[in-house]
Nucleic acid binder design. Structure first.
Lengths: 231, 231
DNA sequence: CCAGAACATGAGGAAAACTCATGTTCGTGA
DNA sequence: TCACGAACATGAGTTTTCCTCATGTTCTGG
């Protein structure tokens, strides 16, 4: 099942889920697809510069060099825009992880954990906007100030579960022995916890506090070990 | 050191920290102190009803039966308002935990963990607004949609560290044997992780998914055990 | 080449955030 | 008890942001 092409097939499918989201146009022609991506890029860039609360749709549009109306063709609003960015981030993350896993499979759950965390950390450093929204899972306790804005995705529920399942699939043989149901729960918990601790690590240190990153790995390893130990 | 009066001495001290916060008046007369609290109560109530993104300062003021100008006397804006609420929540939590601890000290770190988690869960159920902002630590991934709003407190850094220290103090004899420095880090990490997992637990189930609450305890216990085991 | 779908645009309406000039109440020292 | 400065109260109005929508243009399949 590994490497069955880019896994962005259902990107933006979230638009079908949000209750309040009035359903926006999906870009089908190449030109508008490029504009769509450009808007997301602009959003990511501004997030890093100003934070989520300071972000305005007008400024995103301006930086993306599209009129404001075009932005609202594709996104129902600021929230939807951020959700779409979170979704794209998730796709990128899973792709990158997939690539690294097929390069050389890790030894056991501990190795898998290290890989997953390291890749996340790398994206926190490299990818614009990732520091502010990552997957929209947990604490965007960033510059804009608070988590009220937080449930980026009304789809969060499904999203979280989906991510856990994807990780489970990516893990492959590593988790082969475990009870699948308990494992899915365990992965969701681990994911949520790791995201929180890593956000903490990046709150004070722009490169991520190494001590806290190490603690994050220890936390997850320890938890998963127990999870996998007792059947 | 236990029970040295209400620990809200420095409540609202956060106002000194936020960069963008233009510094607001602090209520000193009784009447305005009551209004201040009433505004916070109104904010909490509306949070539960509408979510953080739907919250408007005008409506908060209306429910608190104060003119809009008064709200802005005390709070520099929506963000500051939510931060103040988070701060008050934290004070309440520490007070409640303190009370329970002095009633009957728990057996070891595991017992302490259970107590701390149970009290948090109780507040998620009882205290208006707590489900939306709790301490402003992590994922207000609630109805408003995302964590951009998330770092409720620019003071988060200090806040987190302070909370860890307070917990350390509350723990008292339970953690006596441990290395204080490592313990402080451990508690911060545990706190962040627990908050995230508990928010997950309440995302789907209004009363908190029991399975996930149990997993949260297991996660923290396991992590702290290792922390305290290896010196 | 034409019809219809997809796309583009930005002035302007609606709503929320936030200000500030003006007037009132409180505490307290003489 | 009174006077005076500090703290408090108020809400109409300014600014800012969100978002819509009527109108016009470009693409694509038959």
């Amino acid at each position: 099942m590994r490497h069955s092409g880019p896994m962005s097939a259902d990107t933006r499918s979230h638009q079908a889920a949000g209750r309040t989201v009035p359903a926006r146009r999906r870009p089908v022609q190449q030109r508008s697809q490029e504009r769509y991506e450009r808007i997301l890029d602009a959003c990511a860039g501004l997030l890093d510069e100003a934070g989520a609360t300071a972000l305005t749709t007008k400024e995103v549009a301006h930086r993306a060099q599209v009129p404001i109306g075009t932005l609202y063709q594709f996104f129902s609003g600021k929230e939807d825009l951020l959700a779409a960015l979170a979704h794209r981030n998730l796709d990128h993350y899973l792709q990158r992880l997939d690539r690294r896993l097929s390069a050389g499979a890790p030894a056991g759950p501990a190795g898998f954990t290290d890989l997953a965390v390291d890749e996340f950390v790398a994206m926190k450093r490299d990818v614009p906007g990732f520091g502010q929204v990552d997957f929209g899972l947990a604490g965007t306790s960033g510059p804009t100030g608070f988590r009220g804005d937080r449930h980026l995705l009304d789809t969060d529920l499904d999203n979280n579960a989906a991510v856990a399942l994807r990780l489970q699939a990516l893990g492959g043989e590593v988790f082969a022995a475990a009870d699948p149901v308990a494992l899915t729960i365990g992965l969701r918990v681990a994911l949520e916890a790791a995201d929180a601790v890593l956000n903490l690590a990046f709150r004070s240190d722009p490169d991520g506090d190494p001590v806290l990153i190490a603690e994050c790995k220890r936390l997850v390893r320890c938890y998963l070990a127990e999870q996998l130990g007792h059947d």
